[in-house]
Amino acid sequence: MTQDTDTRLNLSAGVLSVSVALVLVLAKLWALAATGSLSIAATLADSGLDLLMSLGGLAAIAYAAKPADEDHAFGHTSAEDLAALGQSLFILFSAIVIAVAAIRRLLSDTPVALASESAGMVVIVFSIVVTVALVMWQRRVARLTGNRVVAADSLHYVGDLIPNAGALIALWASARYGLAQIDSVVALFAAAVMAFGAQRIGRGAWDALMDRQADPAMIDGIKEIAGNHPGVLGFHDLKTRVAGSRTFVNLHIELDGAQTLDEAHAIGAALRRAIIRAYPRADVLIHKDPTGVQPHPDDPTRH
């Protein structure tokens, strides 16, 4: 799959995410006005944040797809992490607002009755169906392209299904048994889910912006590839960092110093291709050292 194809798929997922979020915001605004349900308010706030996040994600996907230039020699993929960090702060703020409103309603001496529960239930069912369809497409795109923004957006929409299902239960309980307080309990649960998701998204984005190393399983895989590659007598100084959907890999390999430069280059190029075959979104830089060479006292310590 070419980079252009990856970009088109990622952009299609981003545009669909924005479209779905906008439709759900409008539908839930109407449902909130009709029912006065806090659990619907929770899902509305979540959908509103989804819209902001989807817009930010779409912008990040478009910007991250730009090729490296003179000012950004390693590309623009860190834009994905900046967008994710901002999204996590929005989610956390919304969760706090919903939780406070739910607690105040639970402690109130005057219970708030819900209205038009049937209409609200129709909107929530519609929301669930549309969200499931979106998640299925996002997961397919993420599987094909490896884009972290699309994958994270998909996980977030999966999390949206929980408060949506909770709102459906709350509206049904209110219509059937008059248990309006369940609405506030569901809203509290939805706020907790949102806060947990914000913490997870924010931590991942922060780690990437702080140049945290790649997943240990990937590092072990690269070590195995390098250690078993023909002509490579040893390796050291394996360093990785993650930026958006890209993983940057630096590796020093030890080769027979008596061979020609062409032979050494062929071994290094073949190793680079092998690593990229295993990890297609990796950006690999390989430095070649003759085996047995003694490091200069001024050289950094090997790892």
Rank of each mutant, 00 (worst) to 15 (best):
P111N: 03
Q213M: 10
V122F: 11
H72Q: 06
G57S: 10
S47G: 06
A180R: 00
G202K: 04
P163G: 10
N164P: 04
D207I: 03
A190T: 08
A34L: 13
K28G: 06
D183N: 07
E117G: 12
P295F: 00
D207P: 01
D299M: 11
A266C: 08
V284L: 04
A187R: 01
G202N: 07
M218E: 10
D207R: 06
H296A: 14
A282Y: 01
L92T: 11
G48T: 15
L26N: 06
H229K: 09
R104L: 08
K288E: 09
E254N: 02
D262F: 11
A274F: 15
V125N: 05
L24F: 03
I61C: 07
V186I: 12
F74A: 12
S116N: 08
L51M: 07
T110Y: 01
D215H: 10
L261N: 02
A133F: 10
A95C: 07
A205C: 02
H236Q: 01
L107R: 13
A31Q: 12
D237Y: 02
H296E: 13
V122W: 08
S88P: 08
S174C: 10
R277A: 15
A191R: 01
V150E: 06
M53N: 14
V97N: 03
A34H: 07
V123R: 07
D6M: 10
A142N: 08
H265D: 12
T240K: 01
L85G: 01
M53G: 15
V123Q: 03
S47A: 13
A214D: 05
A214P: 02
T7W: 02
A101C: 00
F74D: 14
P295S: 15
T131Y: 13
A27T: 13
P295E: 08
E254P: 01
P297T: 09
I253L: 04
R176W: 09
L285D: 07
L89F: 15
M194A: 14
G197P: 05
L233P: 02
I267N: 12
L106D: 06
F248T: 11
Y157K: 09
D289F: 01
G56N: 14
I96A: 07
D109W: 06
I267F: 12
E263D: 12
D211P: 02
A34C: 15
T301E: 15
L285N: 02
I40H: 09
V149T: 15
T301L: 15
L16F: 13
I267D: 07
